[in-house]
Amino acid sequence: PVYLSVKADNSMFIGNDPVTDETMITALNALTEGKKDTTIFFRADKTVDYETLMKVMDTLHQAGYLKIGLVG
């Protein structure tokens, strides 16, 4: 499974590897070998604001990742 996490300080990680807004999709493409039907499990600290969550989800959708599971 692929886990994308947003921490309380808005830092992002794919698994244990830090990513930025600019590198997130490139890292996901490498990890999933470009398979856009891969489910991305998205988790965020409860203090992360809604705007940040939606920005990340919008970026995922624009890149073609449509299977996003929200996890606690």
Rank of each mutant, 00 (worst) to 15 (best):
K35Q: 09
L31A: 12
V19Q: 03
T26W: 09
Y3I: 13
L28M: 05
G15F: 07
T47K: 11
V48S: 04
D37Y: 06
Y65S: 00
G64D: 02
L53Q: 05
F42N: 00
L4N: 00
A27D: 04
L4H: 01
L4F: 09
D58A: 14
D17Q: 14
D9Y: 07
V6S: 01
N29V: 08
K36Q: 06
Y50H: 12
S5H: 14
T20Q: 04
D45N: 05
A8I: 05
F42Y: 03
L66H: 14
E33D: 13
L70G: 07
R43H: 14
N29G: 05
T20R: 04
A27P: 01
I40D: 00
G72R: 10
T47P: 05
M12Y: 13
M57D: 01
L28Y: 00
D58V: 12
H61T: 11
I40F: 01
V71W: 07
F13T: 07
I40Y: 00
M57A: 05
V19S: 02
I68L: 06
G15V: 03
A30R: 13
I14T: 01
L4T: 01
M24R: 01
K35H: 10
H61N: 10
K36N: 05
P1Q: 09
E33V: 07
I25M: 07
L53V: 14
V48C: 06
K36P: 05
Y50C: 15
K46I: 10
M24G: 00
G64N: 02
K67P: 04
R43E: 08
P1C: 13
I40C: 01
T20M: 03
I68Y: 04
V19N: 01
L4I: 15
T59D: 06
E22N: 07
Q62D: 10
F42H: 00
N10I: 04
M12F: 06
D49H: 11
G34K: 04
E51S: 13
A63G: 07
F13A: 04
T23Y: 06
A30G: 06
G15H: 04
V6F: 12
M12G: 01
F41C: 13
M57K: 06
E22T: 10
V56R: 05
T39S: 06
D21W: 15
A8F: 09
L31S: 05
T32I: 04
V2A: 03
E33R: 14
E33P: 02
A30N: 11
T38L: 08
N16T: 10
Y65D: 00
T20K: 04
M24A: 02
T26I: 10
A27K: 14
F13M: 09
F13G: 01
G64C: 04
D9I: 04
V48L: 09
N16R: 10
E51I: 11
T59V: 13
D58Y: 13
D9P: 10
N10V: 03
G34L: 05
I14V: 13
Y65W: 05
F13S: 05
I40E: 00
Q62G: 09
G69A: 15
L66M: 13
L53Y: 08
T47R: 11
D49M: 10
A63V: 03
G69P: 04
S11K: 12
G64Y: 02
E51T: 11
H61M: 13
D21P: 15
I68M: 04
V56L: 14
N29M: 08
D21N: 14
M24I: 12
N16G: 09
G72M: 12
A8V: 06
E22G: 08
T59S: 10
A30V: 10
S11V: 10
T59W: 09
M54K: 15
A44V: 14
M54C: 11
Y65T: 01
D58S: 12
A27F: 13
V71S: 10
D37T: 07
L4E: 00
T20F: 05
T52M: 11
K67Y: 10
K7W: 11
M24S: 01
L31G: 02
T59G: 05
D37P: 03
L31K: 09
M54Q: 13
Q62W: 06
K35F: 07
L28W: 01
D37G: 09
T59Q: 12
T52Y: 14
T20A: 04
E22S: 10
L28C: 02
D37S: 08
A44K: 04
M54L: 11
G34S: 06
M12E: 01
T32V: 07
P1G: 11
T39Q: 15
D58E: 13
L53D: 00
N29C: 05
E51R: 12
D58N: 14
R43F: 14
D45Y: 05
D17H: 13
I68W: 04
T38E: 05
M54I: 11
I68T: 05
I14Y: 02
A27I: 14
K55T: 06
P18D: 03
A8P: 06
M54F: 09
I25W: 03
Y65L: 01
L70S: 06
D49Y: 05
T47L: 12
K67A: 08
V71R: 05
S11A: 08
I68R: 02
M12H: 02
T32N: 03
V48W: 03
F42M: 15
L53S: 03
M57W: 09
A63K: 02
Y3S: 04
K7H: 14
A63I: 03
M12K: 05
L31V: 11
D58T: 13
V48A: 08
G72A: 11
A27M: 15
Y65N: 00
L4D: 00
T26M: 11
E33G: 15
T47S: 14
N10Q: 10
K35R: 13
I14L: 14
T23C: 07
T38W: 05
T52G: 03
A44Y: 14
G64A: 02
T26S: 14
K55F: 07
A27L: 13
A44N: 04
S5V: 15
T20Y: 05
F41Y: 13
Q62K: 14
A27W: 10
T20D: 09
F41V: 11
D17R: 12
S5D: 12
Y3N: 04
V71L: 13
D17T: 14
P18A: 10
F42I: 15
T32K: 02
G34E: 05
N10F: 10
I68Q: 02
T23Q: 08
T52C: 06
K36Y: 08
Y50T: 10
T20G: 04
K55D: 04
S11W: 05
S11N: 08
Y3W: 12
F13Q: 05
A27Y: 14
V19H: 03
S5K: 07
P1D: 07
P18Q: 12
D21S: 14
Y50W: 13
F13L: 07
P1F: 13
A30Q: 11
M57I: 14
L53I: 15
V48Y: 03
F13C: 08
K36S: 05
L53A: 04
I68A: 04
M54H: 09
R43Q: 13
Q62M: 12
A30H: 10
V6E: 00
D49W: 05
L28G: 00
I40S: 00
T26K: 11
T38A: 07
A30L: 12
Q62S: 11
I25D: 01
G34Q: 05
A27H: 14
T26L: 12
T38D: 03
M24H: 01
T26C: 08
G15M: 08
T23E: 08
N29R: 06
T32M: 06
D45M: 03
K55V: 05
T52A: 08
T39D: 06
K67Q: 10
D45A: 10
L4A: 02
G72E: 13
F41D: 03
T20E: 05
D37V: 04
T47Q: 13
L70E: 05
D37I: 03
D49V: 09
E51L: 13
F42S: 00
D49L: 12
P18C: 07
V48T: 07
K67D: 09
G15I: 03
L28Q: 00
S5L: 12
E51Q: 13
L53P: 00
Q62A: 14
S5G: 03
L66W: 15
S11R: 13
I14K: 01
N16F: 09
E51V: 12
K55C: 05
D17C: 13
K35C: 07
K67N: 14
P18W: 06
K67G: 04
D37Q: 07
V71M: 10
G34I: 03
D58G: 11
V56D: 00
K35Y: 09
T52V: 14
V2T: 02
T20L: 03
N10K: 14
T23V: 04
Y50M: 13
F42G: 00
K46N: 11
S5W: 15
A8T: 07
L53E: 02
V48N: 03
Y65G: 00
K55G: 05
V2H: 02
M57N: 02
L28H: 00
D49R: 13
D45I: 03
V56Y: 08
G69I: 15
P18R: 13
L31T: 06
A63N: 10
T32W: 03
G69Q: 15
V19C: 06
K7V: 06
G64I: 01
Y50E: 10
T59N: 11
M24E: 00
D49T: 14
G34T: 04
K46A: 13
M24D: 01
K46M: 10
T26Y: 10
Y3D: 03
M12I: 14
L66C: 11
T38F: 07
V56S: 02
M54G: 05
L4W: 02
A63M: 03
F41M: 11
N29I: 10
A30F: 09
D21G: 12
G64R: 02
N16Q: 09
V71C: 14
L70T: 10
P18L: 12
F42P: 00
T26F: 11
Y3A: 03
P18Y: 08
D21F: 15
K36G: 04
A44P: 09
D58M: 13
L66V: 10
N16W: 06
D37L: 05
I40H: 00
G34F: 07
F41E: 07
S5A: 07
E51G: 11
L60W: 01
Q62R: 14
M57F: 12
A8Y: 09
M54P: 00
L66K: 10
M24L: 15
G69D: 15
T20S: 09
L70I: 13
S11F: 07
T38G: 04
N29Q: 08
T20C: 04
S11C: 10
M24Y: 06
K55I: 06
D9W: 07
D21Y: 15
